[in-house]
Computed example of a mutant assay.
Amino acid sequence: MHSESIPKQIIQLKGKVIHGEGRGGKIGFPTANIDFTATWLETGVYGVRIRFNGQKYFGVMNIGVRPTFHKNSPKNIEVHILNFNEVIYGISIQVEVLFKIRNEQKFHSVDDLKTQIKKDIANAKSNFIL
């Protein structure tokens, strides 16, 4: 499966990494929650490039309301940075949206969500120019 679309102009977001609910780490995919009001952004899962502290990383970002876990939640942004395992709370990062992988969706179980996240990561890796 390849990305749905590649934006003509790369969307860039900047924000500070804040504490979330910690659920991503508990299910094996830790995320950096970004303090950024995303009301104008389309919900979905995206392949992204992340920059901070002079370094460049790649990852998968979800913009949305986390419907598998919440009925009514404000839209948020969380990024799973590939091959990364550091604590970066309070650090400002830049996220560049490179391509959309899929729309956000509600899963019947956490295991179904984990399976899809693995597919999303594989999809993103196949589209990155490393």
Rank of each mutant, 00 (worst) to 15 (best):
P67R: 08
I63Y: 08
Q116V: 14
R102Q: 05
I50H: 04
N76R: 09
I63T: 01
M61Q: 03
D111Y: 08
G44I: 04
F58T: 04
I101K: 08
Y57C: 07
I77T: 06
T37P: 04
K71A: 06
L82K: 11
T43M: 07
N85I: 02
N72M: 12
R102D: 02
S92G: 14
K106Y: 12
Y46R: 13
I63F: 09
R51P: 01
D111K: 03
T39D: 10
F52P: 05
V60K: 00
N76T: 13
E96S: 13
R102N: 05
T115C: 09
F99L: 10
I101D: 00
H80M: 05
K56A: 12
G54K: 02
A124Y: 04
H80D: 00
K118N: 00
N62H: 09
L98G: 06
H108E: 13
K75F: 01
G47W: 04
I63K: 05
V110Q: 05
T68C: 03
N83W: 03
G64P: 05
H80C: 06
R102Y: 07
N123Q: 13
H108F: 11
T115H: 06
K119D: 04
P67T: 02
Y89I: 03
H70N: 12
R49E: 15
I81R: 04
I101C: 04
I50Q: 10
A38V: 10
S73H: 15
N123E: 07
G59W: 01
R51G: 03
I93C: 00
N53Y: 09
R51L: 09
K119V: 03
P67S: 07
N123I: 14
P67L: 01
L98C: 06
E42V: 10
N123C: 12
S92Y: 15
M61P: 00
I121C: 01
W40V: 14
I88L: 05
D120N: 09
S92N: 15
R66S: 06
I63H: 03
N83R: 13
